[in-house]
Nucleic acid binder design. Structure first.
Lengths: 154, 154
DNA sequence: TATTGTTATACTCTATAACTATA
DNA sequence: TATAGTTATAGAGTATAACAATA
């Protein structure tokens, strides 16, 4: 494994790419999500799916659109995610008695069980991440991410 | 638009979800990528595609695998991304004269032109993001993201 | 008219597994 | 045996557009 020609893995120049906030953000998200998937290995839950399950669980009867708005998803995207959860019997859609356009979402017993297991695994994953930072750094990081969200969301 | 039943967009409780680093990271990445796509509107370049184009440009003849390693991508994922760029005539694959297994990547003139335009738009996008932070906050944020990457990458 | 959900469709990223050809 | 790239295949997130039902 010599660096005889072309470029070896070790000597790839970034030419300023790594100075981009967007790049570092995406890269960090990628690594963290992979660690997340390992943490919940076997549960078959992505970050997004867990997010929906989590919110539906603590907001029983919440409308699909509200979930999408809360998690910053398009209506069609929300449909796709909820569809998958419903197919797996983790959530159910019920017609709203108050507004027939709405579908109230509820977590099923199976969903509750899975969510509980996921939360436990996620706690471990989160601890691993947070342990790499001081308490002050964590607070700072969350605040800065918040600022970025506001700057980018227009 | 009343909050008559179920849950209205405004009163969705997060039940601790928003305290998760992984959640805030994913959310921030989503908002920032959307802003990115708006910034490069019409160029049809995602963050990932731009990243590959960028690295190939400043590392002419780089091997595909090296690009994947640098950008933290699976071999198959790298294939898919490079395939799209090649189909669009933005990069070319050439057999390495030194190691016949390798494919050296090069940016085409069309790719150079597109990358230049993208870089200009990205500068604006990055400025918008960075302007929301002080210079010290930016340094801190980049350092903390770095720390997280190391903590999650195992 | 506006809103909520739906369907159809499409693109991108991601990954696993099996395969070829080279080393 | 190990590495670089390839192909086939699949799942997941994302989004646009057109549509139905309801408000």
């Amino acid at each position: 494994m010599n660096a005889e020609a072309g470029k070896d893995n070790a000597d790839v120049g970034f030419g300023g790419l790594d100075a981009l906030l967007g790049y570092q953000l995406r890269r960090t998200q990628g690594v963290v999500h992979r660690d997340y998937l390992e943490a919940v290995d076997g549960l078959s839950l992505t970050q997004k799916q867990t997010g929906v399950l989590w919110l539906v669980d603590c907001n029983p009867g919440v409308a699909q659109g509200a979930i999408g708005a809360a998690l910053d998803m398009d209506r069609a995207t929300t449909m796709a995610v909820v569809d998958r959860l419903e197919e797996r019997g983790l959530v159910v859609r019920k017609k709203s008695a108050v507004d027939a356009r709405r579908r109230e979402l509820h977590v099923t017993p199976a969903g509750e069980k899975l969510l509980a297991r996921a939360k436990s695994r996620i706690a471990t994953h989160e601890t691993r991440l947070k342990d790499s930072l001081t308490s002050r750094e964590l607070t700072t990081l969350l605040a800065l991410l918040q600022k970025l969200q506001q700057a980018a969301d227009r």
